[in-house]
Amino acid sequence: MEYILFIIAAAITIGSSILALTRLNASHALIYLVVTLLALAVIFFLLGAPFAAALQIVVYAGAIVVLFLFVVMMLNLGKSSVEREQRWLQPRMWYGPAVLSAILFAILCVAIYDSPSSDTTGTMVSPKEVGTELFGPYIIAVELAGFLLLAGLVGAYHLGRRYLSDRRS
């Protein structure tokens, strides 16, 4: 049962991500990105990681993509940008990267199938276990993540100011 669900979710993920990348309008791409993230959340749930799934939806799709949308709306890209994208997105630009991506895909597949295959356990890892780990062995990493977010905050504030070049920083 999970297997079938997994296949469906996987197909949605891939299709949605491809669609996300090939749109001309930034907002459309972001919506497709949200779909991708939601499908991934389903897959996380199937893998027995409900906490991760919830986080994915709340933080990733709910905050990060929303941030993206805000900035895109602020930049006020209009019809001219759509035409520009069309100009830029010529099929002939796709050949090189396609080849490279195919090669990389092939190599990594070989790497995966070389190693012994196994199944997932199917048991759910509850949020309680995750929490215990976080406050136990990974406490330092949590603090460092806090540093990182603080740095991100300060950086974003500084970079977002108007007339950055005129004012003394």
Partner: peptide, 25 residues
């Protein structure tokens, strides 16, 4: 029926390559 890990990894690789393709293009 549990999910074979290979398949999930395959999906991960596919997503990664797709993302790479997008960055390059």
């Amino acid at each position: 029926m549990t999910i074979p890990v290979d398949l999930v990894m395959l999906l991960a690789i596919a997503l990664f390559v797709i993302g790479l393709f997008g960055v390059l293009t």
